[in-house]
Amino acid sequence: MSTTTTSTAVLDATGQYYKEFNEQIRELVRQGVTEFRLDNVNGQRYIATGLEGDFIFEINGLPGQDLAAFTRGARIRVNGNVQDGVGNTMDDGKIVVDGMGGDVVGYAMRGGAIYIRTDVGYRVGIHMKSYLDRRPTIVIGGKAGDFLGEYMAGGIILLLGMFSDKSDAPITGRGLGTGMHGGVIYVRGNVPEHQLGPGLRSRPVTPEDMQVIEGIVRDYATELNLDAEEIFSESFTKIRPFSHRPYGNMYVPT
């Protein structure tokens, strides 16, 4: 069921299977609709997956796996939590989640931004990469699970650790940045040394880093209606790869 107001298509996801639901969205896209409000979303997978263009989505409910996978350009706001795989291999666009993120957020993304208000699961930002002017960004307001930024090849992950349901958990799980060979992970406060991947060290940020962080934080705070100054009330550290070729000298020819 869909109603189209002035320019926003309003779709009710109640009881809809993802395949038909997404086909409805694509059909509206073909008709030229660019703004969507999706209500009562409850686990439908692949919403906005593979879409290219300047689309705006407001999602009410809990979108399923792979929200906006391979997407290029869509701006998505989720009023609630999301499941795993948000922004999988996304090319460009902006996803704001006013809630929790699942596992593998932003896997291999090479452009755009993903803002999560609270905690995320395991393997977030794995293999993010940057290319030319594209510098993907993930901001996590809460805490992260194991292997944040593993194999990271480019882009920025900013971990705040502030808005978390897990009061006892460390700010990040094991193996932060394991095998990273590009990009940077900024952390508000400190990371326990033993949570870092092999060979990595955390360092204080430079004024240039702070400039980057400031830009990102201000936008994040605006999008999620947070107090940027409170975020800045603590210092930041950064984790960078120790080499762009972490496995460069491992081999001998036969």
Partner: peptide
């Protein structure tokens, strides 16, 4: 190659053993 793979010139292209999803 960089243009096609969409990664910077000269950086290693590492494909992890599993797909992490």
């Amino acid at each position: 190659v960089s243009e096609t793979r969409m990664i910077p010139i000269g950086s290693d292209a590492i494909s992890p053993a599993p797909h992490h999803d």
